[in-house]
Design a protein around this nucleic acid. Structure first.
Lengths: 126, 126
DNA sequence: CAGGATCCCCCAAGATACTG
DNA sequence: CAGTATCTTGGGGGATCCTG
């Protein structure tokens, strides 16, 4: 039933695609507890340029996950927030985050093991 | 606490990176219920070339999520299976899949709405 | 069948500079 | 501060051919 759900051009691939880039998930997460201005997002996230943040927000907007609101007072104040749909994605994202905390070390260990020279042949894979 | 967990160069980003490409998640999912041969994986998944599948499996192997086993009988029989670590990732992946089934339509609707000409201005955004 | 070797394309993402 | 405009690049991913 759900077996081939994630496969081929199935609709379920949509969700994978939504998280299949560097920043979508991170930005959604940064918006988890309320509206945020771009400058705030950049502070919270760190390491993301203004240009890339804007691109990411546009992508999320396009997919109905994020909502943009420009305040009408003269200032150039803008806020982004999760839509109802966007909020529903927080649960899966959280599951990923929890997993990372529980198993991140193991992944790093595996990577190092893969790179480390083989104790027998003293041959490095990397 | 977990607030800035997903941000910057934090370890939690590891998990996002693991799912930040087209095939990792899909292949992990295709391996969910036991060892599979490459040809089986390609059938189940659909739309993935032999080369890309191999690359993906190597990536997953490198991160300790997948295990490769070559049978020693003369045949060129090979099987891949999830490691213990890999299996722990199934829960988060499943959460994503469930979400896709529940909200995939909404995403597609949002995309179409974003592309459709504005009823007022008859201007298309795409 | 497994999977390596090549060639090519596209685009997310980075850096930088500029406008309202 | 918000956002755009350029230019560049790295690498994922597709297609094709070839070998053990």
């Amino acid at each position: 039933m759900t077996t081939d759900a994630f496969l081929a051009d199935c609709r379920a691939r949509l969700a994978f695609d939504l998280l299949s880039n560097t920043w979508n998930g991170v930005v959604l997460w940064a918006l988890r507890d309320g509206p945020r201005r771009p400058v705030e997002l950049r502070e919270r996230i760190g390491g993301i340029s203004s240009k890339v943040l804007t691109e990411t927000l546009r992508r999320l907007q396009f997919n109905g996950l994020v909502d943009r609101q420009a305040h009408r007072d003269a200032s150039s104040r803008v806020e982004y927030q999760l839509t109802a749909l966007g909020r529903t994605l927080l649960a899966p994202i959280d599951a990923i985050g929890v997993w990372a905390f529980e198993h991140g070390d193991e992944v790093m260990a595996a990577q190092e093991a893969a790179c480390a020279p083989d104790p027998q042949s003293a041959r490095s894979t990397c």
